[in-house]
């Protein structure tokens, strides 16, 4: 790890000030991607702005028909939250299956979403549930936020402060984890809100998380895993690596989608 100067702001305003003022500054949330990356010398920020003491970025609240989660809320806190468990059980279950217990005690929803790892779990939930990413500057719809592998709509000096999930009628996430890393080899989140059905796929796409339009159309007619019979994901544009080739990932997308629909309807 290369040397850096460490900063510990206590408010979003202070953090934003440091981020824009200090040269080559990086935000540190849970640190479970940034620190390993810095150890490998793939990242070498001159200034690290630790958000760990920014109290206003933590916590979970129900606001009308939405659940609003502070960006610095850990995966363990989302998984164990009675509010999330009651309002969006599929989201609590997703958080409870990220990494391992120790990772869940440190990793945060804001860090995961800002990083937009192509195999991360949360981006699929944000996209399928039509979440709104709230920053210190604006509100961004999930559809506009995720812009490709490790790429988002965030601009210089912009900090995710909260993420708002409108409560779906039914939703679930299923993943086929890489047995070593627990990242999604393929993960599929399905969400039904009113007559709208959205299906988001993570882990598979060469450009990160994406919506699967054919499955959405089929499930909008009837929200049952049977509706996906004969609906096949295309292998073009999917990742191929030592863990799984594109054809296999395409197959897994169908399997995970059917399982997610079954879980969402309580089968």
């Amino acid at each position: 790890m290369y040397a850096f100067t460490y900063h510990r702001p206590e408010t979003i305003r202070q953090a934003a000030g440091l981020l824009s003022r200090k040269e080559d500054a990086k935000l540190l949330a849970g640190g479970h991607t940034l620190l390993p990356t810095m150890k490998q010398r793939l990242a070498s920020p001159g200034n690290v702005v630790d958000l760990g003491k920014v109290a206003e970025m933590k916590g979970i609240e129900r606001k009308g028909r939405a659940v609003v989660i502070g960006a610095m809320t850990t995966h363990a806190d989302v998984a164990g939250s009675p509010i999330v468990q009651e309002a969006i059980p599929g989201l609590a279950a997703l958080a409870g299956n990220i990494g391992d217990p120790h990772v869940r005690n440190r990793g945060t929803i804001g860090g995961s979403v800002a990083n937009n790892d192509p195999a991360a779990d949360y981006p699929a939930a944000c996209l399928a549930m039509g979440a709104t990413i709230i920053t210190n500057k604006r509100k961004i719809a999930a559809d506009d936020f995720f812009q490709g592998m490790f790429d988002t709509a965030l601009e210089e000096g912009e900090i995710i402060t909260r993420i708002s999930f409108p409560m779906p009628g039914k939703a679930a996430y299923m993943k086929f984890p890489n047995p070593a890393s627990r990242y999604a080899l393929v993960g599929v989140c399905v969400a039904k809100r009113g007559s709208e059905v959205r299906v988001a796929v993570t882990g598979a796409g060469a450009s990160g998380v994406f919506r699967w339009a054919e499955a959405e159309a089929a499930l909008a007619k009837r929200f049952s895993s049977k509706s996906l019979d004969g609906v096949k994901a295309k292998a073009a544009g999917l990742n191929a690596d030592i863990h799984a080739d594109a054809e296999y990932r395409a197959h897994l997308i169908g399997v995970m989608a059917r399982r997610a629909v079954d879980a969402a309807v309580g089968k």
Binding site: D50, H102, N105, R106, A180, S181
Partner: peptide, 25 residues
Amino acid sequence: TSQCGACVVHVDGKAVKSCTLLALQ
């Protein structure tokens, strides 16, 4: 690399991997 767990300690009562945490945090 925060995978093996040989470095697990408790910080404020929660188990964490101490290889993936700055002491300053």
